[in-house]
Design a protein around this nucleic acid. Structure first.
Length: 875
DNA sequence: CGAGACACGC
DNA sequence: GACGTACGTGTCTCGA
């Protein structure tokens, strides 16, 4: 049912004024009452979520009541000086917020409330009257409720036809008759002198109305009382007239006038002037926004309908009836550290009821998750983590017919647009057009979240299916959650003795180099500060400035490399940088992340970070452990098989991206190179230079390697010239030559860019999509970037698809065959496992066969598998 | 606390 | 002629 909220503006403003300490805007205007009023308004929106709203104010001191009785409200003091200007201020603010403000000359706000309530209240429209004045209780009907402000500004009491008798001992119809007898000192309504609340209540309870009292006057016991009643009969009837709120004013309003037209752009500047900095977003959240500045406020939607915690049941409600064969939405809060967190509390919504419970009864929760037909959540990995122990919880991801049971809405959103930085509720509610999350207590928010989740399920699934991403979700991404969690929980062992030893040695070396640098520079400075280093190199020593950054001289490795011959100091700086990086990021960084219980390192694999579909790894990042330099490999050598395991195994795809390029482009020469098992860089050099492969020099090969690399990334002659230290013209020649030898590659690249221009997106072999909004930008930079992305993403993304598919398959085979050996890491084109000797050969075969056959391309996929006592030697 | 510079991986 | 290899994460400095 729709709701009309009518606010007694004068009453609320008074309340707010006295409830809050004095506040002033920067210009000195008192603002506390206005601020308090708005705070109450937000609260009301949260509680009532009205469809229509009007605010009524008193107008003029002279009303029909003062004509009847000149002393009406005669004893009321003037409003405080600081309050008076706030009456017009609040009206301006409300009007700016698109809220209908009503004043009626000669009448009080109450009369407007009464008349609106009478006019509009019906079985189709519930009226909610907001006031601090109990007189308004007379307006209560079956269609109109009164919310009375109590103490402060946040406490409200809803009075209805049903509960009024209980609360006050009488109903709405008695209010005016009681008042007629007892009077009201605040309004200076006389009543019958000597009759107070008690007597008035008793009389009306007995005789119903004022008329009834006088008709039965003889039956009234107490001589004095009878006398007073008779003496003041006229005054009593006058008092009743004064107390009676008018409900028959003809007001020129239609319901449509009470639809709020909220425009942030109009309200925000006003609030800024008043100094209400935090109010705008809160208002936007509860009132929604008329799209005029969705970007500015983050595109919030209308807030959810009222979130009541009254129906929040505990775990006793989790009977099979609650979840069996039902869709449930789940949101949980966690305790502890990854990947061994536990559930602090969990909210489960089955579309009708919400249960909140803790994680103590894990079996029950597993039953719920496995008994439901569909589990809707954004926390699949976290739930599998917290409900399992050293392995992911045994929760079925698929129904028997193979369709996903777990609907991870965040993961779906990632597939729909992988370029975003987060997939939280704020974004999801907007993306799938459901009301945004209510704010308030943790309970209110979590309840609001499970409700939102439930509502998102349908639009999310439909959108994913419409965008042809469902298959990707079910065949790759959903099962991957399990695989990733297995690896996270497994963790990888680090040789701590060796770690300590290496740390000591590297730190000593760092000290030494640092001292040498200070000696050579003739002063001490912070070598880690590019700014200070720049001063030494380019000002003190006068070395040529090669490159500048936004903030000063560039001192990066490329620059220092060019300055190598200028001073022996440069070499030392580079050396310092290398060691410093290894010590801080890797040695010290890894040491603090060794788990106390497992003595292993447990990274987090993130599935929803990269724009291309790759994984990322963090805390720590185990995908960028050094490998290129001798010193760096000392870090890598720290990673070893843990207790109960004998060796580390690495399986890496050889040239997977170039192979994918060969397949996708269909280029004959490239396909032939791979089919014949050629060294692709040597082959390319020979092709491009038009000579025999045996005659290719190592320099020529490395140039070709750089070209191959560049091709994958969307080459430019400038980039290549910089990489190879050749002129741009020469680089361009190389590229042209490359494309002339691999014509279908050129064609493929052009096609990708063309397709992107036409459709605004590109896809991988498995349908993973990436939108390229800048592809038709007039800005050269942005457009060029998008074009390179169009060339690179299908290749890199397809590689990501393939290895994800492979690792899922490897994991399920390891489980199926009951191997002890297990997956530890994925590094883009490499899987790392720890194995026991008895299984080693079988594992190696399993890896090679599984990974190579996971997809059939026009070129062979080749996987190199090795094992060794540490990760550095596994090659 | 965020931006910038830098460096590590694929 | 612009811009100038894709994709990440972590550490450190520096200034608000």
């Amino acid at each position: 049912m729709k709701k009309l909220m009518i606010i007694d503006g004068s009453s609320l403003l008074f309340r707010a004024f006295f409830a809050l300490p004095p506040l002033r805007s920067a210009l000195g205007t008192p603002t506390n009452a206005v601020y308090g009023f708005l705070t109450m308004l937000i609260k009301l929106y949260e509680e009532i979520n009205p469809d229509y709203i009007a605010v009524a104010f008193d107008k003029g001191r002279q009303t029909f009541r003062t004509e009847l009785y000149s002393d009406y409200k005669g004893n009321r003091p003037d409003a405080p000086e600081d309050l008076r200007p706030q009456f017009s201020l609040i009206q301006d603010v409300l009007k700016a917020m698109g809220i209908c403000v009503i004043e009626e000359e000669g009448f009080e706000g109450d009369d407007v409330l009464g008349s609106l309530s009478k006019t509009f209240g019906s079985s189709d429209l519930a009226v909610q009257i907001i006031t601090g004045d109990r007189d308004n209780l007379q307006l209560i009907t079956e269609h109109s409720h009164v919310f009375l402000t109590k103490k402060g500004i946040s406490d409200m009491l809803e009075v209805t036809l049903e509960n009024m008798e209980e609360l006050y001992g009488y109903g709405p119809d008695k209010v005016i008759d009681i008042k007629a007898l007892m009077g009201d000192s605040s309004d200076n309504i006389p009543g019958v002198p000597g009759v107070g609340e008690k007597t008035a209540l008793k009389l009306i309870a007995e005789y119903d109305t004022l008329e009834g009292v006088y008709e039965n006057i003889d039956a009234i016991s107490g001589k004095k009382l009878k006398e007073r009643l008779l003496e003041n009969k006229e005054l009593a009837f006058l008092s009743r007239q004064l107390a009676t709120i008018k409900t028959d004013l003809q007001l020129p309003y239609e319901l449509e006038n009470f639809v709020q037209q909220f425009h942030v752009s109009e309200v925000k500047p006003m609030f800024e002037t008043l100094g209400f900095t935090k109010l705008t977003p809160r208002l936007v959240q509860v009132m929604g926004n008329d799209s005029d500045s969705a970007d500015e406020i983050g595109g919030l939607f209308a807030v959810q309908e009222e979130v009541s915690l009254d129906d929040l049941a505990d775990s006793t409600a989790l009977t099979p009836d609650f979840y069996t064969e039902k869709k449930v939405a789940i949101h949980a809060l966690f305790d502890g550290k990854t990947p061994f967190r536990t559930i602090d509390s969990i909210y489960i919504f089955n579309g009708d009821f919400i249960v909140k419970t803790d994680g103590t009864n894990g079996t029950l929760l597993l039953d719920v998750l496995n008994g439901a037909s569909t589990v809707i959540t954004t926390q699949t990995k976290d739930l599998l983590e917290a409900l399992g122990t050293d392995k992911p919880a045994a929760i079925r991801l698929f129904q028997d017919n193979g369709t996903p049971r777990i609907h991870d809405i965040s993961l779906m959103a990632y597939l729909l647009d992988p370029t975003r930085t987060n997939y939280g509720y704020l974004y999801l509610t907007e993306l799938f057009s459901v009301p945004s999350i209510a704010t308030g207590s943790v309970d209110v928010e979590c309840v609001s979240m499970v409700k939102a989740l439930f509502a998102m399920n349908k639009p999310a699934v439909e959108t994913v299916q419409r965008e042809e991403l469902w298959r990707l979700y079910e065949t790759i991404e959903l099962p991957l959650i399990h695989t990733l969690l297995v690896m996270e929980k497994n963790g990888i062992y680090i040789n701590t003795d060796k770690l300590e030893d290496t740390t000591v040695r590297f730190k000593a070396e760092l000290e030494e180099v640092q001292q040498e640098i200070y000696d050579m520079a003739g002063e001490t400075f912070n070598i880690n500060s590019p700014k200070q280093l720049g001063v030494i190199l380019f000002e003190k020593m006068g070395l040529p400035v090669i490159k500048k950054t936004k903030t000063g001289y560039s001192t990066d490795a490329e620059v220092l490399d060019m300055l190598r011959n200028e001073s022996p100091l440069i070499e030392k700086i580079l050396h310092f940088r290398t060691i410093s990086k290894l010590v801080s990021t890797y040695l010290d960084g890894l040491a603090v992340l060794i788990n106390d219980r497992t003595h292993r390192i447990h990274t987090t694999f993130n599935q929803m970070v990269t724009a291309t579909g790759r994984l990322s790894s963090s805390d720590p990042n185990l995908q960028n452990i050094p490998v290129r330099t001798e010193k760096g490999r000392e870090i890598r050598a720290l990673f070893s098989p843990g207790e109960g395991f004998d060796t580390l195994v690495s399986a890496d795809y050889s040239q997977i991206e170039l192979r994918i390029l060969a397949h996708l482009s269909g280029d004959e020469a490239l396909i032939r190179a791979f089919t014949e098992g050629k060294d692709i860089h040597r082959f390319t050099a020979a092709e491009v230079l038009g000579k025999a492969q045996e005659e290719v020099t190592s320099e020529e090969r490395s140039h070709a390697k750089a070209i191959n690399f560049g091709i994958i990334y969307g080459i430019s002659d400038f980039g290549l010239s910089r990489d190879l230290g050749i002129t741009r013209g020469e680089a361009k020649n190389y590229i042209d030559l490359y494309f002339s030898r691999y014509p279908r590659v050129k064609e493929y690249m052009d096609n990708m860019v063309k397709e992107a221009h036409e459709t605004g997106k590109v896809r991988t072999m498995f349908g993973r999509v990436r939108e390229l909004p800048d592809i038709n930008s007039r800005n050269f930079n942005r457009r060029s970037f998008a074009e390179r992305t169009a060339m690179n993403t299908p290749i890199q993304g397809t590689a990501a698809d393939i290895i994800k598919l492979a690792m899922n398959k490897v994991e399920s085979l390891l489980e199926e065959k009951g191997f002890t050996s297990r997956l530890l890491l994925q590094v883009h084109d490499e899987l790392v496992l720890e194995a026991v000797n008895e299984e080693l050969e079988a594992i190696k075969v399993l890896l090679k066969e599984t990974m190579e056959s996971v997809v059939t391309l026009d070129v062979p996929l080749i996987v190199d598998v090795h094992d060794a006592e540490n990760w550095a030697l596994v090659k």
